[in-house]
Amino acid sequence: MDKGKASKELETSLQNLDLNPQSNVKNKISIATNHHQFQGLLPKKMKPPSLVSLCIGVIGKHLEDIITDLPEIAIGLPAEIKTAVAAIARRRKLLNDDVLIALADTSWEYLDVSGSDVSDVGLIKAAEVCRSIKALDISRCTKITATGISELVKHCRLLETLRCGGCLRSDHTARRCLSIFKPRLDYVEEDSWEELDTKEISSGAQSLRWLVWPNIDNNSLDEISTECPRIIVNLKSSPFGFMGTQVPWEALQNTVLDDVAVKDIDPKTWRGRGFAVKPASPSPSTSPELSVAEKFRLAFEERDNRLAPKRAKNARQHQRRAVRELMLMSTRAKAMVLASQASKSLHSRSS
């Protein structure tokens, strides 16, 4: 081998020599991980939790110790933190009327109280505050009746998605609320348009479009489909939407409304020792069947509450008609009324 050829090979070898083996290893690892055969085999680098998420987790872990002071604490909390605390309280089976009322915020657009101890009192108070609610989950809430739902739709005019049912008592309440779910014009009897109360012209859920009711019976489904086809019941997920309409994520059956509030919070930070999350949807067979007496009691109570405003309105009508008849039949009474009006007119002019 001549000297020229040997020197050329030596120069080539020196050029290929890498004096930084660490970078060589990194390059090989980078090439390997970028190859399609290795994608998904190596664990992805997890993003560390934020300080806010850690603090919310600590609040959630000791939530039972601060419930009595929660109204004062929640005053200075932003709306998104209130939502996260409410979601943790629901998961820890601590969400009740007091907690919901303390955390309710005017900017909330969705509310999940499913499987909680919230009753009509807490739901009505929250509806009076959270008038911008567009999606609500009251499934498996055994203390919420048709009275609470009736007041809810009066205050939350933007409600588009409602999730209900899930157990025997909640299914019974949902069946009693069919007339509330369907928007309608009320038939009112007044003597003149001046006496007509504007809030009595229409009632029902005016904006309701999506109803998630897993155990809906055939009769209820037929009634909604026939009388109010605008309300879609138990829509299955589809990438193409529904009849050209974009389906909101709140209307999908397997969606948990408040998951988005705690997605960045590690459950280990708020779970207490020995705490286990109960299943979200217990089997209907495990719920006790309502007795006949209880069904009659609930039906009578809901009917009485539903007819109470009409009874009050009829009483006012009878009172006004009695005054008119008295004025027409009795000249003395008519004179007294006219004298009273004249006296008021003179007093107003003199003042």
Score class of each variant (00 low, 15 high):
1 M>E: 06
7 S>Y: 04
7 S>C: 08
10 L>M: 12
17 L>E: 05
18 D>L: 06
21 P>F: 04
27 N>V: 05
29 I>K: 00
29 I>L: 13
36 H>L: 12
37 Q>W: 03
38 F>A: 02
40 G>I: 00
45 K>M: 07
48 P>E: 08
48 P>V: 09
52 V>H: 09
55 C>E: 10
60 G>K: 05
61 K>A: 05
62 H>F: 08
70 L>I: 11
71 P>Y: 07
73 I>A: 05
74 A>S: 14
74 A>G: 12
79 A>T: 09
81 I>A: 12
84 A>Y: 03
88 I>F: 02
94 L>E: 14
98 D>E: 15
102 A>S: 10
103 L>P: 00
105 D>G: 07
106 T>Q: 07
106 T>C: 03
108 W>F: 14
114 S>Y: 09
114 S>E: 09
116 S>E: 11
116 S>H: 11
117 D>H: 09
127 A>N: 02
134 K>P: 08
135 A>V: 14
140 R>Y: 14
142 T>D: 14
147 T>I: 11
147 T>F: 05
147 T>R: 06
153 V>T: 04
154 K>V: 12
155 H>N: 13
159 L>C: 06
163 R>E: 08
169 R>T: 15
174 A>E: 01
175 R>C: 07
177 C>Y: 02
179 S>I: 01
181 F>H: 01
181 F>C: 01
188 V>W: 10
189 E>Q: 15
190 E>D: 12
199 K>S: 03
200 E>K: 07
200 E>Y: 02
203 S>G: 01
204 G>M: 00
206 Q>G: 00
207 S>G: 02
208 L>C: 01
215 N>G: 08
218 N>T: 14
219 N>P: 04
222 D>H: 05
223 E>L: 07
223 E>M: 05
228 C>H: 03
229 P>N: 07
232 I>P: 00
233 V>C: 10
238 S>K: 14
240 F>E: 09
241 G>S: 12
250 E>F: 13
252 L>T: 11
252 L>K: 14
256 V>W: 09
259 D>T: 15
265 I>T: 08
270 W>L: 06
271 R>H: 07
282 P>G: 11
284 P>A: 08
285 S>K: 08
289 E>Q: 10
290 L>T: 01
298 L>W: 13
299 A>K: 14
300 F>Y: 12
301 E>I: 11
302 E>Y: 06
306 R>M: 09
306 R>C: 08
309 P>R: 00
311 R>L: 12
312 A>L: 11
312 A>K: 06
315 A>P: 06
318 H>M: 08
320 R>N: 10
321 R>D: 14
323 V>R: 15
324 R>P: 04
325 E>D: 14
327 M>A: 11
328 L>Y: 07
335 A>I: 14
337 V>L: 15
342 A>Y: 14
345 S>I: 04
